[in-house]
Amino acid sequence: MHELLLFASVPTHQHHELLRQLAGLTAMQPHHRVERRLVFKAYRKPGVITTRVGASQDVQGADMQRLNKMLNGGMFYTQVVGPVSELAFGAKPSSSRNPDALMSGMGELPPSNENADNSYAYENQPWKLEFRDIPEAGTRSAVTSRLMASSTLPKGDIIESMNAWGYSFVTEYVVEGDIFIHNDIVIFLHRVLHYPTEGQEPNEPRRILPPFETMTPLERTGSYVLQAAITVQDGGNQEMMKTASQHLFGLREQLKSAVRLEQADRLSLDTRAK
């Protein structure tokens, strides 16, 4: 699968207005979204793992194959993404007493929706592995284009599984923003939030989330990133790739009086682990 993207930087003061404009453009209310994002880095040469990862009951066979293929391709940074509810921040941890119930809730629902009380069960956190290649070089079209794949991971603690695949935890952050859908294009107006730093950065994902108010934007003026993305099933199909970039250009044109959507600097999206 291929992903074509355009980006724009959105200053804080323009954020609200842009939300309105996007709501108008896409004729929909924004879908608010908060995601935990864990950054992992490959530490082992590829092609040596044939491990059966434990605790992977909720990963289907096809997904499993895809995972293996993705993770054994080369030395890459990769992301593990998990949706959370804003309510989960600052909530007390809840241990999962009923593992069967957890298995059934395999959907995309943030865990705290399942529990009436405001608690956050790390064991119940769904994850997705999002693999992205370095954007293609030398494409003359003015969009960022890259190979992508994603796959569902086991819930809860994924460190062990990732280690087994040869990946080590680097850091984690939170992405907060709003999603709009414009035909084939997913528009995500978001920003990166940092966890409050109390001494040592933990070297594994947090099990408890701090209150949302204590999260600080990476970009300290609070600016947002506008990302417009479109996925193409078969990246080898030039016709489709062209159509997709034309759709993105159309959007760029429609938004031009508000923001300037551009191709990203290729090296800033370099996922290769050196």
Binding site: M1, T26, M28, H31, I179, I181, N183, D184, I185, V186, I230, T231, V232, Q233, D234, N237, E239, M240, T243, A244
Partner: peptide, 14 residues
């Protein structure tokens, strides 16, 4: 239609 339209779309296929 609204529901479908505001869901993340599937990848582009011919």
């Amino acid at each position: 239609n609204l529901r479908r339209r505001t869901q993340p779309p599937p990848p582009l296929v011919p």
